[in-house]
Amino acid sequence: MERQDRDARQPRLRRRGQGELEAQVLGTLHGAARPVNASWVQERIGGGLAYTTVMTILTRLLAKGAVTRERVGRSFEWSSAAGGAGLAALRMREVLDGECDRGAVLASFVTTLSPDDERLLRGLMGSTGGA
């Protein structure tokens, strides 16, 4: 009974969806006027996130090419590597990476495109040698 009482007193934190924290970090970096350190990101996101959690997310985003970093003294300053279009593309790729049947997801996506978007996609694929 003691555990139930303790649990009732503590507010339940909502669990973030897959990729949500990465999107928050990217959005925060995208909104920064200049490169910033991890503590700055941590303060802007809030929610009681640990510094180590922010560093883990930044490191993962670095590996994906979504952010850049530059050593400043003993730490790093971080920047978004892409604008709004790049952030949207990263989210789309993360959704695709989370699915078992990539072909089915892509086929379903393509069939919902407007004729203008389909022409744009065909043009982009042709210009990269992918079609």
Rank of each mutant, 00 (worst) to 15 (best):
A85H: 00
T56M: 15
G46V: 14
S127G: 02
Q4R: 11
A131T: 03
V25R: 00
R69F: 04
G103C: 03
V25N: 04
A82V: 03
Y51A: 05
F76C: 01
P115K: 05
T53G: 10
A131F: 00
A38F: 04
Y51Q: 07
W40N: 02
G84S: 10
F76M: 02
L121Q: 03
R12M: 06
W78Q: 02
A82E: 08
Q10C: 05
A32N: 08
Q42Y: 09
G129Q: 09
L49S: 07
E77A: 14
M55A: 12
V110P: 09
S39H: 12
M125V: 13
M125Q: 13
I57A: 03
A38E: 11
L121C: 00
R44K: 12
S79M: 08
A104W: 11
P115D: 00
G19H: 02
L90H: 01
T53E: 15
S39V: 14
R9W: 07
D97A: 11
N37W: 08
G19V: 01
A66M: 12
R3V: 14
R16L: 13
T52A: 12
F109V: 01
C100R: 15
Q24A: 14
M92P: 15
H30D: 00
G130W: 04
Q18C: 15
G19Y: 05
D101V: 04
A32G: 07
E70I: 12
G103E: 12
T68R: 04
L124E: 06
S114N: 03
F76Q: 00
A23P: 09
P11N: 07
R91N: 13
R71C: 06
M55N: 11
E70W: 13
V110R: 12
G47L: 03
G86K: 07
E94T: 14
R12Q: 10
V67K: 07
T28N: 12
L124Q: 08
A63Y: 06
L120A: 08
L113I: 13
F109H: 02
A104N: 05
F76S: 04
L61G: 09
P115G: 05
A89K: 08
D101Q: 04
T53H: 05
G65A: 05
E20R: 01
F109G: 00
L106E: 11
A32V: 07
E70L: 13
V41S: 01
C100K: 14
L87G: 10
A85N: 02
A82K: 03
L62H: 01
R34S: 15
L58P: 12
T53Y: 07
R60M: 10
R12A: 11
T52F: 12
E22F: 14
A8F: 00
R69G: 10
